[in-house]
Amino acid sequence: MTYKLILNGKTLKGETTTEAVDAATAEKVFKQYANDNGVDGEWTYDDATKTFTVTE
């Protein structure tokens, strides 16, 4: 399945996607991606759209 991440960081905004077997796996990938890019904030997940959002 394809999962999407929306980044609403103070210095980085954008979107990315990943292929993962489940939401938990996608979340690990996205949290590492956000961490690597210096984005740390509040996370939400919408199962209907398979979209994670992180907002600083």
Rank of each mutant, 00 (worst) to 15 (best):
M1L: 13
T2D: 06
T2F: 09
Y3E: 01
Y3I: 02
Y3F: 14
K4H: 14
K4T: 15
K4E: 03
K4A: 04
K4Y: 15
L5H: 00
L5M: 05
L5K: 00
L5I: 04
L5W: 02
I6Q: 05
I6T: 04
L7W: 11
N8V: 13
N8A: 08
G9P: 03
K10E: 08
K10R: 12
T11S: 14
T11N: 15
L12F: 15
L12N: 08
K13V: 12
K13M: 09
K13D: 05
G14Y: 13
G14H: 10
E15K: 07
E15C: 13
E15P: 04
E15D: 06
E15F: 14
T16N: 06
T17M: 10
T17F: 14
T18Y: 10
T18N: 03
T18V: 15
T18P: 01
T18H: 06
T18K: 04
E19G: 06
A20V: 05
A20C: 07
V21W: 13
V21Y: 12
D22N: 09
D22W: 03
D22V: 03
D22C: 05
D22S: 07
D22Y: 04
A23F: 13
A24D: 11
T25G: 09
T25V: 08
T25M: 15
T25Y: 08
A26K: 00
A26E: 00
E27R: 08
K28C: 08
K28Q: 12
K28R: 13
V29R: 10
V29T: 10
F30K: 00
K31E: 04
Q32D: 07
Q32Y: 06
Q32M: 08
Q32G: 06
Q32V: 09
Y33W: 14
Y33E: 02
Y33C: 04
Y33N: 02
A34T: 05
A34S: 05
A34V: 09
A34K: 01
N35A: 15
N35K: 15
N35T: 14
D36W: 07
D36Y: 09
N37F: 15
N37T: 07
N37Q: 15
G38S: 07
G38V: 03
V39Y: 07
V39P: 02
V39Q: 04
V39F: 14
D40C: 12
G41M: 03
G41D: 01
G41N: 02
G41K: 01
E42W: 13
E42A: 10
W43Y: 02
W43H: 01
W43R: 00
T44W: 09
Y45H: 02
Y45E: 00
D46R: 03
D47S: 13
D47A: 14
D47G: 09
D47Q: 08
A48T: 15
A48S: 12
K50G: 05
K50Q: 10
K50S: 06
T51L: 05
T51I: 06
F52G: 00
F52I: 01
F52P: 00
T53E: 06
E56S: 08
E56Q: 11
